[in-house]
Design a protein around this nucleic acid. Structure first.
Lengths: 171, 171
DNA sequence: CTGTATCCCAGCGGATACTG
DNA sequence: CAGTATCCGCTGGGATACAG
């Protein structure tokens, strides 16, 4: 166990009683918290929504997201640095060179997150009427977020096991 | 089209060129934004993480989440009001009555969101070593978020059609 | 043990004005 | 068109102290 650095393992079951664990001692290593550092703001998620919906130009994104240029510029820069978006030059015939923001492969991995958020938001009481429907092209059926294991099983919460492996520098 | 209130439909393809649309004019109706109003804060998501991981008592949640009591109390109240958590009384043998926070059925629907966040966070560069593994009990395989349609197909972003239906009060 | 009340600061995000 | 710069109010969230 003690070989320069010590490794502590902890097995818990989701939504069940868990083994004793004090906290995520090393703040910042939990992947969920790291994710929140980048996309934990309203503006980041809304910009991503617009990019998923086909927005590309700075101008469009700002208007459609309904946020100010300052915030948009800041978030877009962070998203590009994090590798979620690419800022690519392009030129329309007869126009000057411009830049467009497009999702990277990694950025596209955020799709389930976006669908989950949408799904969740629909449960909440809404002030104004309106709907956002996502359907499978061709088949026409509605889409929804799921959790599956690599073996292909649908996995409910109570069948999920969480293992926390934390490496601590033991001086 | 004009029958007291007018309905404007707009069909767009995700990550493709979309039909002209100006903005989500009526701020607040997009389900994604409504979701962010409730769980768009770091503290809300982290508390949910802890509840999914089996945390129940106020005391535990505060310590494990690493946030202050004030914030925890505020968020927990909101989550209870929104129907994500139940605040239920219980008593251990020989102890006085206490309250515990447990996920409602609706709250459990946040599971895909949590898994999506975790998955996403793992792409990001991490400062400290450590890992959070989610596996399917019994089968042992890792779990991951997916988007599927009701017909059972795996649906990638580019096969998704988004329809925005917005009802406007045309005076 | 489960919160509430206060104080305080950093950051989000709106508004406006200004550059290339 | 694509941002930057500045000002400013609001809230998130830490710290501390207090209450049922």
């Amino acid at each position: 166990v003690s070989n320069g650095g010590s490794v502590s393992k902890d097995v818990i079951t989701l939504v069940g009683r868990r083994a004793d664990r004090d906290s995520w001692t090393a703040a910042g290593w939990c992947p969920i918290e790291r994710a929140l550092d980048l996309i934990g703001t309203r503006s980041a998620m809304i910009l991503l929504r617009e990019v998923f919906f086909g927005g590309r130009r700075f101008d469009d994104l700002v208007r459609r997201a309904g946020i100010t240029e300052a915030i948009a510029a800041k978030r877009l820069k962070q998203l590009v640095e994090a590798g979620m978006l690419d800022r690519a030059p392009y030129r329309e015939p007869g126009q000057r060179v411009r830049h467009e923001y497009v999702l990277t492969d990694r950025g596209r991995e955020l799709f389930p997150l976006l669908v989950s958020l949408k799904r969740f938001g629909e449960w909440l009481p809404q002030q104004r009427p309106g709907a956002l429907q996502l359907t499978h092209e061709g088949c026409g059926a509605k889409v929804a977020p799921h959790v599956r294991c690599e073996a292909g099983h649908e996995v409910p919460v109570w069948e999920t096991i969480a293992r926390i492996t934390e490496v601590q520098e033991s001086e």
